[in-house]
């Protein structure tokens, strides 16, 4: 018989004892250690994952900040550019205004000079015309121009219209001083003629003062306070001046 039942029973007991011992010494300990290690590794992995997450969040934060900075920089640059452009336009406008002002000044000066020149020209022309007219009158009629002037002035004084006469009359009632301004020295005869006419108009007691002034061009003026009766070349010269002015303006 190959099977010894006592040995079978003993081996069953032996094996069960071995199972018990190994369960305590080997399987329990080893599986516990393995499980603990697995837990530790899992915990470490989790921790690493968390750290990675944190790092990624940090990275995102910094990236956002960088973007913010870049945007601000861009904004500031744009603002500076805009301001520079405004400044440039302002300077340009100021320069243009300056140029305009200078131009206006220049125009003004030019106009003033033109006016001065015209005044000067008028005066000279008056004198020349007076000279030319006198010479021409002297040559042609063999008469003194001044005599003619006095005659024309006397004629005007005689033929004075009613309104002016009234004014003259009422003025001479208050103030009896009459000033006669002429461009040349009047002869005694001429002075007498003028006085005679005035006396006829306003009575004997008027005081006549005679004065020579180069301002009056080739003529005689009678001045009472507030009024004036005159004949001179001024009238003709003024039209000449007008013609000259228009001629000059056409030129410029």
């Amino acid at each position: 018989m190959l099977i010894d039942w006592f040995t079978v029973a003993a081996q069953i007991i032996n094996f069960l004892v071995l199972v018990g011992i190994l369960k305590y010494f080997l399987y329990g300990r080893i599986t516990r250690a393995m499980r603990e290690r697995e837990d530790k590794i899992a915990a470490r992995l989790e921790e690493a994952l968390e750290r990675e997450q944190e790092a990624r969040q940090e990275l995102e934060k910094y990236q956002k900040q960088n973007e913010e900075l870049a945007r601000k920089r861009e904004q500031m640059l744009a603002q500076a550019r805009e301001e520079a452009e405004l400044e440039r336009k302002k300077l340009l406008r100021e320069a243009r205004e300056e140029v305009d002002r200078a131009k206006a000044r220049w125009h003004e000066t030019l106009a003033r000079e033109k006016d001065a020149f015209l005044a000067d020209l008028r005066q000279r022309a008056g004198h020349l015309v007076f000279e030319v007219a006198r010479r021409a009158l002297a040559d042609l009629a063999n008469a003194d121009l001044e005599e003619h002037i006095v005659r024309i002035f006397s004629q005007r004084l005689k033929e004075i219209d009613a309104d002016k006469l009234h004014v003259l009359h009422s003025t001479l009632q208050r103030d009896r001083n009459v000033v006669i301004v002429s461009s040349f020295e009047l002869s005694e005869e001429a002075k007498e003629t003028i006085a005679e006419i005035l006396r006829r108009h306003s009575g004997n007691n008027i005081k006549l003062n005679y004065r020579v002034s180069p301002e009056v061009i080739s003529g005689i003026e009678l001045k009472i306070p507030g009024h004036k009766i005159a004949w001179s070349l001024d009238h003709y010269l003024e039209s000449l001046e007008e013609d000259l002015r228009s001629a000059l303006e056409e030129e410029t």
Binding site: L18, F25, R29, I30, A33, R37
Partner: peptide, 22 residues
């Protein structure tokens, strides 16, 4: 018994200083 003894000794010695470190 010899085999049992050997197994027990190996298990006891092998698990003498168990650690859960790596």
């Amino acid at each position: 018994w010899v085999i049992m003894g050997l197994l027990v000794v190996i298990a006891a010695v092998g698990t003498w200083k168990l650690t859960s470190e790596t």
